[in-house]
Amino acid sequence: MPMPTDHRPGTTPDAEPAAPLEPAPVVPLISVRDLSVEYRVSRTNSWLMAVADVNLDVHEGEFLTVLGSSGCGKTTVMNTIAGLVQPTEGEVLIDGRRVTGPGPDRAVVFQDYALLPWRTVVDNIRFGLEMQPGRRRADWRAQVADAIRLVGLDGFEDSYPRELSGGMQQRVGLARALVAEPRILLMDEPLGAVDALTREVMRAELERVITATGKTVVFITHSIDEAIVLGDRVAVFGAHPGRVLEILPVDLPRPRSEQGVMAQPGFVELRDHLWGVLQGDARSASRGVAGS
């Protein structure tokens, strides 16, 4: 006789009624499974392994930072989640469904901003809405205005991208992503091309804006400080081929982008640890090259 699958309270008399409920096994919002990506290098007509056997889970509402040196394949992983790159092996699941291409549940903020130079700030942000079916044209104006206010672009509505500084251009990129109301925000070194001072300011604003929206974020960076300040967890990537070296939680109180936080013992400890992991990988990589 099949067991009844009834979980109504009281049907199992031997269960302890006062026990706290066990959290149900949560399905991760993003699940990267055994992902490998290979590229064809047309110049030498050979294949390059960009990413090897990456496994990564990101839960709803989580801010995951991906830390690694340049060219370690972390962008490839992000592009696969975005649906821009097809896996050679393995798969990416969003809410349990396999990713086959871009979708309205995901938006990307690019390192080089990728704004359309012939569109003003307003029209660039609007692009996030234009392509999505089922959006009411009548609501566009208000939605874009909200996004502009949120990222602090007031007064620059009719500017062209080339008239803005790098930091301001990236605000447009962020607004374009937010206005599309994705569940997942993919950010590829969004502060990589802005100057150091603006970077600090923008980092604080990102923490404020994005934690307020409660979105699930995958944030790629090669800055250890940035990875710790922003991340609920940090996934450390190694290079050649790109793979996950370690995933570790950041248990520091928010907001973290305030003065003094970076000097706290917990922060320093994490930074030292992450630095050690990255250095270890770099050293073994250079030894590997020297030995071969």
Partner: peptide, 20 residues
């Protein structure tokens, strides 16, 4: 990267051609 961005936000080949 402009084409990539357009694809991310849901542009198909026709939109990529005419809008980008």
């Amino acid at each position: 990267s402009l084409v990539k961005a357009a694809r991310v936000y849901g542009a198909g080949p026709v939109d990529v051609f005419f809008k980008v």
